[in-house]
Simulated assay, not measured.
Amino acid sequence: MKENIISINHVHFRYPGQTVYALKDVSLNVAKGEWLAIVGHNGSGKSTLAKMLNGLHYPEEGQVTICNFPLKDEFVWDIRRRLGMVFQNPDNQFVGTTVQDDVAFGLENNGIPHEVMVERVKASLQRVGMLDFLNQEPHHLSGGQKQRVAIAGVIALQPDIILLDEATSMLDPRGREEVLRTVRQLKEEQDLTVISITHDLEEASRADRIIVLNKGSVYREGTPEEIFQLNEELIKLGLDVPFPVKLSEILRLQDFEIASNYLSEEELVRELWTSNFKK
Protein backbone atom coordinates (compact mmCIF):
# COMPACT_ATOMS: atom_id res chain seq x y z
CA MET A 1 0.00 0.00 0.00
CA LYS A 2 1.12 3.54 -0.76
CA GLU A 3 1.69 5.94 2.11
CA ASN A 4 -0.90 8.59 2.89
CA ILE A 5 0.08 12.07 1.73
CA ILE A 6 -3.00 13.68 3.38
CA SER A 7 -4.76 12.56 6.56
CA ILE A 8 -7.92 14.21 7.90
CA ASN A 9 -9.10 12.89 11.25
CA HIS A 10 -12.45 13.75 12.87
CA VAL A 11 -12.44 17.34 11.61
CA HIS A 12 -15.17 19.79 12.61
CA PHE A 13 -15.43 23.35 11.31
CA ARG A 14 -17.94 26.19 11.66
CA TYR A 15 -17.83 29.62 10.08
CA PRO A 16 -17.74 32.53 12.55
CA GLY A 17 -21.18 33.27 13.96
CA GLN A 18 -22.66 30.01 12.65
CA THR A 19 -24.09 27.22 14.80
CA VAL A 20 -24.28 24.65 11.97
CA TYR A 21 -21.06 22.84 11.12
CA ALA A 22 -19.78 23.26 7.56
CA LEU A 23 -17.67 20.14 8.18
CA LYS A 24 -18.83 17.58 10.72
CA ASP A 25 -16.60 14.72 11.92
CA VAL A 26 -14.87 14.36 8.52
CA SER A 27 -12.20 11.67 8.29
CA LEU A 28 -10.43 10.63 5.09
CA ASN A 29 -7.00 9.77 3.74
CA VAL A 30 -5.40 10.46 0.35
CA ALA A 31 -2.70 8.08 -0.83
CA LYS A 32 0.43 9.35 -2.56
CA GLY A 33 -0.09 9.20 -6.35
CA GLU A 34 -3.87 8.79 -6.07
CA TRP A 35 -6.51 10.78 -7.95
CA LEU A 36 -9.31 11.44 -5.48
CA ALA A 37 -12.54 13.20 -6.44
CA ILE A 38 -14.54 14.89 -3.69
CA VAL A 39 -18.08 15.53 -4.87
CA GLY A 40 -21.23 17.05 -3.43
CA HIS A 41 -23.98 19.54 -4.08
CA ASN A 42 -23.73 23.22 -3.13
CA GLY A 43 -23.47 23.45 0.65
CA SER A 44 -22.12 19.91 1.07
CA GLY A 45 -18.81 21.17 2.51
CA LYS A 46 -16.51 20.46 -0.43
CA SER A 47 -15.42 24.10 -0.96
CA THR A 48 -14.78 24.49 2.77
CA LEU A 49 -12.64 21.37 2.67
CA ALA A 50 -10.68 22.71 -0.34
CA LYS A 51 -9.91 25.91 1.56
CA MET A 52 -8.82 23.93 4.59
CA LEU A 53 -6.38 21.88 2.51
CA ASN A 54 -4.79 25.15 1.39
CA GLY A 55 -4.56 26.49 4.93
CA LEU A 56 -7.30 29.13 4.56
CA HIS A 57 -9.35 27.45 7.30
CA TYR A 58 -8.22 25.56 10.38
CA PRO A 59 -10.19 22.79 12.12
CA GLU A 60 -12.24 23.69 15.15
CA GLU A 61 -11.72 20.09 16.24
CA GLY A 62 -9.69 17.25 14.76
CA GLN A 63 -6.40 17.11 12.88
CA VAL A 64 -5.23 17.64 9.30
CA THR A 65 -1.78 16.47 8.16
CA ILE A 66 -0.44 17.25 4.67
CA CYS A 67 2.95 15.95 3.46
CA ASN A 68 3.80 15.15 7.10
CA PHE A 69 3.08 18.74 8.22
CA PRO A 70 0.25 19.35 10.71
CA LEU A 71 -2.08 22.14 9.59
CA LYS A 72 -0.87 24.92 11.89
CA ASP A 73 0.26 28.52 11.40
CA GLU A 74 3.96 27.64 11.58
CA PHE A 75 3.67 25.06 8.79
CA VAL A 76 1.10 26.63 6.45
CA TRP A 77 3.69 27.91 3.94
CA ASP A 78 5.43 24.53 3.91
CA ILE A 79 2.06 22.99 3.01
CA ARG A 80 1.31 25.56 0.30
CA ARG A 81 4.66 24.88 -1.36
CA ARG A 82 3.65 21.25 -1.68
CA LEU A 83 0.01 21.71 -2.67
CA GLY A 84 -0.84 23.73 -5.78
CA MET A 85 -4.40 24.87 -6.49
CA VAL A 86 -6.13 25.41 -9.83
CA PHE A 87 -9.28 27.49 -9.37
CA GLN A 88 -12.64 27.68 -11.11
CA ASN A 89 -12.08 30.82 -13.21
CA PRO A 90 -8.70 30.89 -14.99
CA ASP A 91 -9.02 34.62 -15.69
CA ASN A 92 -8.81 35.29 -11.95
CA GLN A 93 -5.43 33.55 -11.81
CA PHE A 94 -3.60 35.46 -14.52
CA VAL A 95 -1.19 38.19 -13.43
CA GLY A 96 1.31 38.26 -16.32
CA THR A 97 1.01 40.03 -19.67
CA THR A 98 2.18 36.90 -21.52
CA VAL A 99 1.87 33.18 -20.92
CA GLN A 100 5.51 32.80 -19.90
CA ASP A 101 5.31 35.80 -17.55
CA ASP A 102 2.31 34.27 -15.84
CA VAL A 103 3.92 30.87 -15.34
CA ALA A 104 7.08 32.60 -14.04
CA PHE A 105 5.19 34.67 -11.45
CA GLY A 106 5.04 31.99 -8.74
CA LEU A 107 8.66 31.03 -9.34
CA GLU A 108 9.80 34.64 -8.89
CA ASN A 109 7.85 34.89 -5.65
CA ASN A 110 9.63 31.77 -4.41
CA GLY A 111 13.07 33.19 -5.22
CA ILE A 112 13.93 30.65 -7.92
CA PRO A 113 17.15 31.67 -9.78
CA HIS A 114 16.52 33.14 -13.26
CA GLU A 115 18.28 30.37 -15.19
CA VAL A 116 16.30 27.69 -13.38
CA MET A 117 13.10 29.68 -13.78
CA VAL A 118 13.47 29.90 -17.58
CA GLU A 119 13.93 26.14 -17.83
CA ARG A 120 10.99 25.38 -15.54
CA VAL A 121 8.66 27.73 -17.44
CA LYS A 122 9.44 26.05 -20.76
CA ALA A 123 9.32 22.53 -19.31
CA SER A 124 5.95 23.06 -17.60
CA LEU A 125 4.38 24.63 -20.71
CA GLN A 126 5.77 21.76 -22.79
CA ARG A 127 4.12 19.24 -20.44
CA VAL A 128 0.68 20.82 -20.87
CA GLY A 129 1.05 21.32 -24.63
CA MET A 130 1.24 25.13 -24.48
CA LEU A 131 4.88 25.85 -25.35
CA ASP A 132 3.90 27.33 -28.72
CA PHE A 133 1.92 30.01 -26.85
CA LEU A 134 4.90 31.23 -24.82
CA ASN A 135 4.55 34.90 -25.83
CA GLN A 136 0.77 34.90 -26.31
CA GLU A 137 -1.42 37.20 -24.22
CA PRO A 138 -3.53 35.04 -21.88
CA HIS A 139 -6.84 36.76 -22.70
CA HIS A 140 -6.52 35.57 -26.33
CA LEU A 141 -6.61 31.91 -25.26
CA SER A 142 -9.62 29.59 -25.11
CA GLY A 143 -10.97 28.49 -21.71
CA GLY A 144 -9.27 25.10 -21.91
CA GLN A 145 -5.97 26.68 -22.93
CA LYS A 146 -6.16 29.14 -20.04
CA GLN A 147 -6.65 26.34 -17.54
CA ARG A 148 -3.72 24.42 -19.02
CA VAL A 149 -1.55 27.52 -18.54
CA ALA A 150 -2.83 27.76 -14.95
CA ILE A 151 -1.83 24.11 -14.44
CA ALA A 152 1.61 24.88 -15.93
CA GLY A 153 2.02 27.66 -13.38
CA VAL A 154 1.28 25.18 -10.61
CA ILE A 155 3.51 22.33 -11.81
CA ALA A 156 6.42 24.75 -12.42
CA LEU A 157 6.52 25.02 -8.62
CA GLN A 158 6.96 21.22 -8.47
CA PRO A 159 4.24 20.46 -5.88
CA ASP A 160 3.47 16.98 -4.60
CA ILE A 161 -0.29 17.58 -4.83
CA ILE A 162 -2.52 19.38 -7.34
CA LEU A 163 -5.96 20.42 -6.13
CA LEU A 164 -8.54 21.21 -8.81
CA ASP A 165 -11.21 23.40 -7.19
CA GLU A 166 -14.14 23.24 -9.66
CA ALA A 167 -11.43 23.82 -12.29
CA THR A 168 -13.48 22.54 -15.24
CA SER A 169 -16.91 23.93 -14.33
CA MET A 170 -16.66 27.00 -16.59
CA LEU A 171 -15.31 25.11 -19.61
CA ASP A 172 -17.08 23.72 -22.65
CA PRO A 173 -16.87 19.93 -23.23
CA ARG A 174 -13.77 20.23 -25.42
CA GLY A 175 -11.96 22.44 -22.90
CA ARG A 176 -12.94 20.12 -20.05
CA GLU A 177 -11.56 17.13 -21.94
CA GLU A 178 -8.29 18.98 -22.69
CA VAL A 179 -7.75 19.79 -19.02
CA LEU A 180 -8.65 16.34 -17.66
CA ARG A 181 -6.46 14.60 -20.24
CA THR A 182 -3.57 16.91 -19.28
CA VAL A 183 -4.04 16.20 -15.57
CA ARG A 184 -4.11 12.43 -16.18
CA GLN A 185 -0.87 12.58 -18.19
CA LEU A 186 0.88 14.68 -15.54
CA LYS A 187 -0.26 12.34 -12.78
CA GLU A 188 1.11 9.30 -14.57
CA GLU A 189 4.38 10.92 -15.65
CA GLN A 190 5.24 12.53 -12.31
CA ASP A 191 3.37 10.37 -9.77
CA LEU A 192 1.44 13.46 -8.69
CA THR A 193 -1.40 13.26 -6.22
CA VAL A 194 -4.56 14.86 -7.65
CA ILE A 195 -7.64 16.00 -5.75
CA SER A 196 -10.70 17.13 -7.71
CA ILE A 197 -13.26 19.18 -5.80
CA THR A 198 -16.30 19.09 -8.06
CA HIS A 199 -20.05 18.67 -8.44
CA ASP A 200 -19.51 17.17 -11.92
CA LEU A 201 -19.63 13.37 -11.82
CA GLU A 202 -18.31 13.21 -15.40
CA GLU A 203 -15.08 14.71 -14.06
CA ALA A 204 -15.18 12.50 -10.97
CA SER A 205 -15.41 9.39 -13.15
CA ARG A 206 -11.76 9.97 -14.18
CA ALA A 207 -10.58 9.58 -10.58
CA ASP A 208 -9.32 6.45 -8.86
CA ARG A 209 -11.67 6.98 -5.93
CA ILE A 210 -14.65 9.20 -5.10
CA ILE A 211 -15.79 10.60 -1.77
CA VAL A 212 -19.35 11.97 -1.62
CA LEU A 213 -19.99 14.75 0.90
CA ASN A 214 -23.45 15.63 2.16
CA LYS A 215 -24.32 18.23 4.80
CA GLY A 216 -20.69 18.51 5.84
CA SER A 217 -20.10 14.79 6.38
CA VAL A 218 -18.70 11.89 4.37
CA TYR A 219 -21.75 10.16 2.88
CA ARG A 220 -20.08 7.44 0.79
CA GLU A 221 -16.70 6.55 -0.65
CA GLY A 222 -15.54 4.04 -3.23
CA THR A 223 -14.38 3.55 -6.79
CA PRO A 224 -16.32 5.35 -9.54
CA GLU A 225 -17.97 2.03 -10.43
CA GLU A 226 -19.12 1.53 -6.82
CA ILE A 227 -20.34 5.11 -6.38
CA PHE A 228 -22.33 5.16 -9.64
CA GLN A 229 -24.27 2.10 -8.50
CA LEU A 230 -25.92 4.50 -6.02
CA ASN A 231 -27.80 5.98 -8.98
CA GLU A 232 -31.02 7.10 -7.26
CA GLU A 233 -29.25 8.11 -4.05
CA LEU A 234 -26.93 10.42 -5.98
CA ILE A 235 -29.85 12.05 -7.77
CA LYS A 236 -31.58 12.66 -4.40
CA LEU A 237 -28.39 14.38 -3.23
CA GLY A 238 -28.58 16.77 -6.19
CA LEU A 239 -25.88 15.05 -8.24
CA ASP A 240 -26.34 14.11 -11.88
CA VAL A 241 -25.10 10.67 -12.93
CA PRO A 242 -22.88 10.71 -16.07
CA PHE A 243 -24.71 10.12 -19.35
CA PRO A 244 -22.92 6.82 -20.22
CA VAL A 245 -23.93 5.40 -16.84
CA LYS A 246 -27.57 6.44 -17.38
CA LEU A 247 -27.60 4.97 -20.88
CA SER A 248 -26.02 1.72 -19.71
CA GLU A 249 -28.81 1.31 -17.16
CA ILE A 250 -31.55 2.15 -19.70
CA LEU A 251 -30.17 -0.37 -22.21
CA ARG A 252 -29.95 -3.05 -19.54
CA LEU A 253 -33.59 -2.44 -18.61
CA GLN A 254 -34.39 -2.96 -22.32
CA ASP A 255 -32.68 -6.39 -22.08
CA PHE A 256 -29.49 -5.43 -23.88
CA GLU A 257 -26.50 -7.47 -22.71
CA ILE A 258 -24.56 -4.66 -21.02
CA ALA A 259 -21.90 -6.02 -18.69
CA SER A 260 -21.67 -3.02 -16.36
CA ASN A 261 -22.25 0.71 -16.02
CA TYR A 262 -19.74 2.23 -18.41
CA LEU A 263 -18.05 5.44 -17.30
CA SER A 264 -17.18 6.79 -20.73
CA GLU A 265 -19.02 7.02 -24.04
CA GLU A 266 -16.07 5.33 -25.79
CA GLU A 267 -16.30 2.27 -23.52
CA LEU A 268 -20.07 1.99 -24.00
CA VAL A 269 -19.87 2.33 -27.79
CA ARG A 270 -17.14 -0.33 -27.89
CA GLU A 271 -19.30 -2.68 -25.80
CA LEU A 272 -22.33 -2.17 -28.04
CA TRP A 273 -20.23 -2.64 -31.16
CA THR A 274 -18.49 -5.82 -30.05
CA SER A 275 -21.71 -7.33 -28.67
CA ASN A 276 -23.51 -6.74 -31.98
CA PHE A 277 -26.39 -5.11 -30.10
CA LYS A 278 -27.55 -8.41 -28.65
CA LYS A 279 -30.78 -8.43 -26.69
Rank of each mutant, 00 (worst) to 15 (best):
K2E: 11
K2M: 13
H10F: 01
H12E: 15
Y15D: 00
P16G: 09
T19K: 15
V20L: 05
V20M: 04
V26M: 07
W35T: 13
W35Y: 08
L36N: 07
H41C: 06
S44R: 01
S47V: 00
S47K: 08
L49R: 01
L53S: 06
H57L: 08
H57W: 05
T65P: 07
F69A: 10
P70H: 14
L71V: 07
D73T: 15
D73L: 15
V76Y: 07
R81V: 09
R81Q: 10
V86G: 03
F87N: 11
T97R: 13
V103F: 01
G106P: 06
G111D: 00
K122I: 09
S124Q: 02
Q126S: 12
M130T: 10
L131A: 14
L134M: 02
N135A: 12
P138G: 05
P138F: 12
P138R: 06
H140G: 12
K146V: 04
K146E: 04
K146A: 05
V149N: 01
A152M: 05
I161H: 02
I162L: 11
L164V: 00
T168N: 05
M170T: 02
L171S: 08
L171M: 04
R174G: 06
R176H: 03
R176W: 11
V179N: 01
Q185I: 10
K187I: 04
L192H: 01
H199W: 09
D200Y: 08
D200H: 04
L201M: 04
E203C: 09
S205P: 04
A207M: 00
V218G: 03
V218D: 00
V218C: 04
T223Y: 12
E225Y: 14
E225H: 14
E226L: 02
L230G: 05
E232W: 15
E232R: 14
E233C: 10
I235V: 09
I235Y: 10
L237A: 02
L237K: 00
D240S: 14
V245N: 03
E249R: 13
I250T: 01
R252N: 08
S260P: 03
S260K: 15
E266V: 15
E267R: 04
E271H: 13
T274D: 13
S275H: 11
N276W: 06
K279M: 09
K279R: 13
